[in-house]
Nucleic acid binder design. Structure first.
Lengths: 122, 122
DNA sequence: CTGGATCCAAAATGATACTG
DNA sequence: CAGTATCATTTTGGATCCAG
């Protein structure tokens, strides 16, 4: 056992998940599409004021390539493109929900620790 | 609603989690310590053949700073240092378990898709 | 044995200008 | 409107050498 931990299925599972939802913007995009449904490119951009167009395009393409979201193009002038979570992408909701929960608890934990550190410095 | 999605608690939760368990090696380290218990520095290094000493030290320090693992130093010559999951770090096991599960399913999904793609090319 | 310090390479992200 | 293309910057990871 444990002679080559990198080949462990469990470990690979976490890393695989990280490759799909990791990155600075993917969780945000997934969260928006999961909670608010279909969005157009411009809507997403306005909801993430600090992302650049290039990055948004990039992250959306990767999520689409991995099968998490669907890109629907309307052949119109001016162009119109919509994005929404695929059926398969819905399976992420549990994982993302758990990560949300843990992260939120952790933020509380950190706040409390800071407070205690301040008190012990007085 | 949704005027500044970055401030959303849910979104922040995922990102916070990613900051603690993200990175190329942290999931592996956490997995080892969660499943096999206490390990010495050298043991961890041998179990991750491709990690460098510097990176291992680095990742362990960050996990310690975030309160996920405990570093126990024995004042001996030669030095001996042990690492193990903290009580607080145990709370990660659910999240990591879910990520493992999803990632593993996803690997299967990808394998099946590849097979189908090959068939349709014949 | 553990791991600090330094330098270097690669990858992720960001800014800006341009296009059908 | 929804991108593409290019270049700059930042972050992350890796290699190597040194030390208690």
């Amino acid at each position: 056992m444990s002679e080559d931990i990198n080949k462990s299925l469990l470990t690979n599972g976490v890393i695989e998940t990280l490759q799909v939802i990791g990155g600075k913007w993917k969780p945000v995009i997934l969260y928006i599409l999961l909670t608010e449904g279909t969005k157009r490119f411009g809507e997403l951009r306005r909801m993430m004021p600090t992302i650049t167009q290039g990055m948004l395009t990039n992250q959306l393409r990767e999520l689409e390539r991995d099968g998490m979201i669907v890109r629907r193009v309307y052949q119109e002038i001016p162009p119109k493109v919509e994005y929404f979570i695929s059926d398969y992408g819905q399976t992420l909701s549990t994982v993302l929900g758990d990560m949300c929960g843990w992260g939120f608890q952790h933020l509380e934990y950190k706040k409390n620790k800071e407070r205690q550190d301040q008190i012990s410095n007085e």
